[in-house]
Amino acid sequence: MTSILKTENLTIQFGGHIAVDHVNFEMPEKHFKSIIGPNGAGKTTFFNLISGELKPTEGKVYFKNEDMSRFSSVERTRKGLGRSFQITNVFPNLTVLENVRLAVQSKEKIRYQMMRHFTSYPSLIQKAEELLELVLLRSKKHAIASQLSHGEKRKLEIAMLLALDTEVLLLDEPTAGMSLEEVPAILDVIKQIKDQGNKSILLIEHKMDMILDLSDSIMVLFNGQLLADGTPGEIMENETVQNAYLGGLYDEHIAKS
């Protein structure tokens, strides 16, 4: 199977601390892969290296077999690597609709038009409203983003990511900080994206139930190193992973299901 995303010896060092340490990973097209690991394992830093927010000390990122080293984060997004953030990252004083419309506008390459009124592009507004419908936020389209609840902000962020229509979605803890009642809605959205079958998704999460339900494969990071990479079953039975991170989590999951 063709790999859409690959890293080779990807490493980043901050002073004496190696946050990501020679990580080699490969992800096939239209695959759902999750990244797990304890806090400080280097998961978000790994995302930042893939998306181009950080430059690696060593190693390379390949997207569709093209070396991404010379491309900035902006160019990587344009090529098809979209990401969401661990900390909610929206435009706080703009309306919900405006947040998504800006993402649609970028996707449609209407980036430098300066003499036409923005309403003369109704297709952008229509597309943004469709995405808000998908994440169940259409009724709040005129609300200011900063007034949304944490869960709604996460939904908004996913709508913005979907608006970019990138081939790869990097989801950094989409349910972080959400109440238990809010999680299923996000989970449904992610399931819907997966079921559409046209995206490759790389997900960082701590909620094991969610990961086991969604993932085709799981990779485990520990102290910046790749500890294991395999199917959910293989990972759960891996003794090193059990000792380092999971403890009794897998047994709990089996007992629940």
């Binding site: 902006v74 997004t77 929206v90 703009l94 506008q105």
Partner: peptide
């Protein structure tokens, strides 16, 4: 204009604007 709205996005959150391409 669409460009003017991107300027506001830059004011609001430059990093996020970059991540939108």
């Amino acid at each position: 204009s669409p460009l003017g709205h991107v300027l506001v996005a830059v004011r609001e959150n430059e990093q996020r604007t970059k991540s939108l391409g």
